[in-house]
Design a binder for these strands. Structure first.
Lengths: 136, 136
DNA sequence: CTTGACCTTCCTGTAACTGGAAGGTGTATA
DNA sequence: TATACACCTTCCAGTTACAGGAAGGTCAAG
């Protein structure tokens, strides 16, 4: 299949696929006589792995490591499992940060509604609130 | 005050301060005879505004717009208020995405624990699960 | 007089792509 | 047969918000 079909089946953009190939995340496929990339089933598997890992927010660096382990015939499962746990923890942390931020923003918005919206000097408007903001 | 003190009072790194100056987010301060940057109270105000807005996850582009409005003597409060609401919505959306992702990861981890960790071919281990993963 | 903490500018690198230019290819249609 | 159109290719540049580091000037203390 050509790159666009491959793109559809992996839900990676053609740009991304070429990029992954360029940095060695995906192996270069064979070329048709006209120079077009030609993919087959085997390519799909690896691309799915990469896409799946990306969707779990593993970085390309982390994914490369896992792939390298596979290439060295080491079982990456344990490593992968650990990374998955670490990722989950990281995400939990980000969530609570974002929740705090959302709370701040909503509060600020409500407060801002009670303020004049034409105070150019910003002494008595929401802009002032933003200035006074501290990461609390 | 010199840049390091300014840095302390704004909790922006010196690098970041110079960067903001270079891209026009912060105005260039006067220079001491030796070429050192010299900041005063007025500079603090704007830097606090920028730092506050950044802590609310406004991009530098969005912040520039707000500053430009202030420069044009337009009251940016209404715009700012709108941006704050939009940001809050965006963040809420990201939170639910991340929550889903965390749930997926935890599930995957638990499942992974029940799998062998030395399956090099990945037919029956967590790597396989990652491959099969669909954004569901 | 030297050590150390500052300060300066300038250049490079980061992550993970995306956009666009310039040009070749393959097929359907007027 | 011409041409329109959707593909494909490579390569270069830009994005975001900085951080790292080199090379060098400045200032106070010991």
């Amino acid at each position: 299949m050509k790159i666009q079909e491959f793109s559809r089946q992996t839900s990676l953009s053609a740009k991304t696929i070429r990029y992954y190939e360029a940095i060695g995340i995906l192996p270069p496929p064979r070329r048709a006589p006209n120079g077009y990339r030609e993919y087959d089933e085997g390519h799909l598997e690896r691309a799915h792995f990469v896409a799946g890992a990306r969707s779990l927010e593993l970085s390309l660096g982390e994914i490369s490591e896992l792939l390298a382990m596979q290439n060295r015939r080491e079982a990456p499962c344990r490593t992968m499992l650990d990374q998955i746990r670490r990722k989950a923890d990281q995400i939990a942390e980000r969530i609570s940060l974002l929740q705090q931020m959302e709370k701040d923003l909503r509060k600020l918005y409500k407060l801002g509604l009670t303020f004049p919206t034409d105070d150019v000097d910003g002494k008595d408007c929401i802009c002032h609130l933003v200035k006074e903001r501290r990461t609390a």
